[in-house]
Design a protein around this nucleic acid. Structure first.
Lengths: 224, 224, 224, 224
DNA sequence: CATGAATGAGCGTTCATTCAT
DNA sequence: CATGAATGAACGCTCATTCAT
């Protein structure tokens, strides 16, 4: 049973924990929301995709909107934990921390493309206030962390003064986001043959990491 | 009649060119699409917003989807024209052209926030194939132009070799997009009092221009 | 076309005024609400009964609840007008007016059985506040009118003192209502053969009128 | 355990006789049916109100409809028993029996407002045939009893001839029912301050009893 | 090229009921 | 006789679109 994936478990009606079932539905929802948007995805499609009964979605999450909120809550837990741990290492030099931040963010987005697409659209629409609230909180904690990091570097005289931390972060998020959106176009333009999913991620990570590291050196006035 | 705005013209049922009426509807549609997304905006709302009969929209544009396509066609004409003219000036130094490109892009997005929000979501969903086609064409022409520009700079030995033009462009579009999305958050974080709309645009333009110019210098290996 | 009834008009798609169509839908709704209750009647059934498209009901009335309110408004207009005109005749003796009131009320209920059944249930549930408001208004005007009538009779020394006008009215409405509800039972118990609808109404009216006239004489202390 | 009320017993999961549990559920159902009607009350609400598991209701009663039937059966047992005992007292004068009947009926309705509201609606809808059957049986036995009573009075020359027993009974049930429905309105109109529940019942009983006694004297041609 | 009226399809949700334990 | 989980059916309603004029 360890080898069976969720779908098979469902198909054969083997017992499944409610928590896992919820997660399974959220995965399906995430996929569809990323592909077609929240409004264009119907609960019927999500139910079909997840191989569960239509009524389950209201039963588990209360409503379509609350399912979206659950999805955000789920996906954001990991994000927050990692961010908070970053600054604690006292021995790491400031730009090392920046590199870790960049590496971490790029990896997270590449691993959760679908979610970050949804997140992007939600930020544009600003319809679900609960989600906007969660996002704002996350952004603030991110900005606060990076501000601390920048101050540390400035105190150690390795970063220049007058750094616009938010512009810097927006360049990071914006660049990664755009590459996600334009993935196919980027590959095509660079004459890259169709790679395996994992190889492609690795390739994009490498490209983005070097690119952003270079940019952040300039922004922070850091010289290696 | 010159002094009457569109609403008054409609209100008094004065004759109005069909072309203007279409434009007027597209303006309303753009506003709503940017606020709530394509799917969540109903043709009824658009008709109400534009003060026209509900059935007109199907008659003018064929369908809701085709109206969106019309909107894209409308808004992209200007984009294309300016882009193509940029390279013709033989006397301008390469980085001067880069500065113009940055300035032009930032201005265009700040002037058409609503449209660029819609564009962003459409790129994520990739639902309307005609729009995807138009967008791809635009991106390619943009990339081709910037590639030429880079080559010119490299020939003149003012830009370094091995420049990833698409990554550079994605940093430009990504950064500007993120600032648009996070406008309120950016102002709040920087303790900027609520400015007039125009003042805010000017402020953001200045910040973004300096930031991106700096980044592009690094990317292109250009030293002033 | 004069001879065609609504159904035929609808069936043959002949033109029909919107107002008539609304009325036609309300008739169908009234019938079903009286038979099965508001909650148990679905808009689909009502649409089928009225031979109109399901969506029309929301289109015309906004919602199922508002259709009910429209029904009440429609049916109550006549009621109010007649009630207010009753007292104006100066020459009629007080008990003559009482007789007219009784006659009028009995006739109205017998002519609109379905509606008065709905009304009865709505008074029990008290769910739709707008309807409760309308009903209260009607009851108050009825009570005020009868109070005036009683006072006039008392001034003319033909009615006794200390009359509970509301108890009296409740006996009137209650008795008629019960007979409507127990119509079949009443006929069966009295060994009355199945009469034509009109004959039955006439029979019940006669019985109720004599019965209530007799009761009201006692209540009012009136001697002929 | 004698001191614990039903809720506490349920809360502490103490053992409880099935019969009592059923009764407890029926009480909750009665309350909700009277407030919102049968259709509008959901089994979930009833289960919540009764603090029992949702699935229990189907297991105990079979279905929502059968629960309603159980409710009627429960509440009607008492009704029948009392009615049948009334005629047996040989020494009581006929109008004394009428007074007892009136007193008994008024008391019963005032004590079981909720149930009599449900009963009223069920008589209008005539949906549940089993309930209609039970009701018809009850009405017949009531009518038969009152017919006997009237005959007895006529034989003893204290009641007049040609009495419409059903009209008389309908006036009784109708008047009481209307007062139940219009309770608030009646108090308001008569400027009665908000009384305690018990005081109000006593007041209404007194008013109704005198009113109906007076009416029945007229109907029966009885002179004290 | 205009419009009020109309419509089929499909939406998110809720329902009473049943199942596996 | 108990229960949390699950479900098919149906609910009221809204949608983009089309029709008759």
């Amino acid at each position: 049973m360890i080898l069976l994936n969720n779908c098979l478990v469902l198909r054969f009606n083997l017992k499944m924990e409610v928590k896992d079932k919820k997660k399974h539905i959220l995965d399906s929802a995430e996929k569809l929301f990323a592909m077609k948007g929240f409004e264009a995805s119907t609960v019927r499609e999500i139910a079909d995709e997840a191989n569960v009964n239509l009524a389950m979605i209201s039963y588990y999450f209360g409503s379509k909107e609350k399912m979206m909120e659950s999805l955000f809550q789920e996906r954001m837990i990991n994000t927050k934990l990692k961010v908070e741990q970053l600054l604690k290492n006292e021995h790491m030099p400031p730009f090392g921390k920046v590199e870790i931040m960049l590496d971490d963010y790029i990896k997270k987005v590449l691993e959760n493309e679908a979610f970050y697409k949804i997140l992007l659209c939600e930020q544009v629409m600003k319809k679900n206030l609960e989600i906007i609230r969660m996002l704002k909180e996350l952004k603030l904690s991110y900005a606060a962390m990076f501000t601390d990091l920048v101050k540390e570097g400035q105190k150690k005289k390795v970063f220049k003064k007058n750094i616009d931390v938010l512009l810097a972060l927006n360049t990071m998020t914006g660049t990664v986001t755009q590459i996600i959106i334009n993935k196919e176009h980027y590959c095509e333009f660079n004459n890259i043959e169709v790679l395996q999913e994992e190889e492609l991620k690795h390739f994009l990570h490498s490209k983005l990491f070097d690119h952003l590291k270079n940019i952040f050196k300039t922004i922070l006035g850091y010289e290696s």
